[in-house]
Simulated assay, not measured.
Amino acid sequence: MNKYLLIVVVLLAIIVASIDAKKERKQRKSQLNTDEIAVKSATDTAAANEVVKQDQCLKLKCDAGKECVIDTESGKAKCQCISTCADNTDVRRRVCSNHNTTWQSDCHLYKHRCDCIEGQKSSDCDDKHKHMHIDYYGECQELPECRKEVLEDFPRRMREWLDHIISKKVETSGTGDDGSDHSKKWIDAIIWKFCDLDKQPHDRQVSRHELFPLRAPLLSMESCISDFLNGCDPNDDHKITLVEWGECLGATDAEMVDKCNKFHSIKEN
């Protein structure tokens, strides 16, 4: 009898232990689910915050040397000086400033300018750094002088270059659709480039600042680019009109028809 009773007690102990183990597993699983939900919630919140940041920053245009961040107090997007620029060892990405100083990259140059303007502590900040900009791409070097014969031939080479570019970008108005002289299709090319340089608000004038994307990449290779562009502004008002641009490249006033709306719509599509 005692033998049977012992067996029953052992079986009951096993059953109780099994039930306890099952409860413990269930509790652990429940805790894991709770932790997973908490982690997922935190992840979703972080992702949502990142989406909000991206949405706000899409609507905010920051100047060179600045980046969009979300203000911790107001929760709104704002522009502030770039915190860090990636180290650059590629000499092709280096830039030369208007003070003849080589910088690792455009990011480094504009970040330094921003820091100086915003009053960040730096041992080499002075007034000239507050107005610093990229003069041309590549390391600073002694640039060759612009020779007279090269300057005289510059408009022709510029026309041919722009004609080559536009032939790949937009459809020009050749003799097929408006009866224009196919030999004059370069006219569309130079009008297109003027419209491309004329950024928002598209006031049909190209400022010295808006000439930068054309001038900076070419200066180290084309010694006459600066003299050529200066000649396109005969009244020295620091703005080039469509007609002035055309005269500079050998087109008549009548040939310089405003087609910027057409070219901008093609670019957007």
Score class of each variant (00 low, 15 high):
residue 87 D to N: 10
residue 20 D to Q: 05
residue 60 L to Y: 02
residue 97 S to H: 00
residue 17 A to V: 13
residue 121 K to F: 01
residue 26 K to F: 09
residue 28 R to I: 14
residue 202 H to S: 08
residue 18 S to Y: 11
residue 248 C to R: 15
residue 175 T to Q: 09
residue 46 A to E: 10
residue 154 F to N: 05
residue 201 P to A: 10
residue 31 Q to C: 05
residue 254 A to R: 11
residue 121 K to V: 06
residue 168 K to F: 12
residue 144 P to C: 11
residue 132 M to L: 12
residue 142 E to S: 11
residue 150 V to N: 11
residue 234 P to V: 04
residue 219 L to T: 13
residue 16 V to H: 11
residue 36 E to F: 03
residue 40 K to W: 02
residue 60 L to M: 01
residue 171 E to A: 01
residue 126 D to R: 04
residue 211 L to Y: 05
residue 33 N to I: 14
residue 7 I to K: 07
residue 112 H to V: 07
residue 186 W to I: 13
residue 27 Q to F: 09
residue 82 I to D: 03
residue 117 I to W: 08
residue 230 N to D: 12
residue 106 D to V: 06
residue 65 G to Y: 07
residue 162 L to V: 01
residue 50 E to V: 08
residue 62 C to I: 00
residue 129 H to D: 14
residue 117 I to V: 15
residue 130 K to C: 05
residue 110 Y to F: 15
residue 142 E to K: 13
residue 163 D to S: 09
residue 143 L to R: 12
residue 160 E to L: 08
residue 228 F to L: 11
residue 119 G to A: 07
residue 265 S to Y: 00
residue 166 I to K: 02
residue 207 S to N: 10
residue 249 L to S: 09
residue 138 G to C: 14
residue 117 I to D: 09
residue 203 D to Y: 06
residue 17 A to H: 12
residue 60 L to C: 01
residue 139 E to Y: 04
residue 258 D to P: 07
residue 207 S to Y: 09
residue 174 G to V: 06
residue 244 E to W: 06
residue 183 S to W: 11
residue 51 V to Y: 03
residue 26 K to C: 05
residue 186 W to R: 12
residue 25 R to S: 15
residue 186 W to H: 14
residue 163 D to E: 06
residue 184 K to W: 08
residue 164 H to E: 10
residue 211 L to Q: 04
residue 151 L to Q: 13
residue 63 D to E: 15
residue 33 N to M: 12
residue 43 T to R: 10
residue 68 C to A: 01
residue 130 K to V: 03
residue 79 C to D: 02
residue 139 E to F: 00
residue 138 G to M: 11
residue 105 S to Y: 06
residue 148 K to F: 08
residue 260 C to Y: 02
residue 131 H to W: 08
residue 190 I to Y: 01
residue 95 V to E: 10
residue 34 T to H: 08
residue 35 D to S: 04
residue 171 E to V: 00
residue 9 V to T: 06
residue 191 I to P: 03
residue 143 L to F: 10
residue 67 E to W: 00
residue 133 H to A: 03
residue 109 L to Y: 10
residue 234 P to E: 05
residue 54 Q to I: 01
residue 31 Q to W: 11
residue 52 V to T: 02
residue 185 K to Q: 12
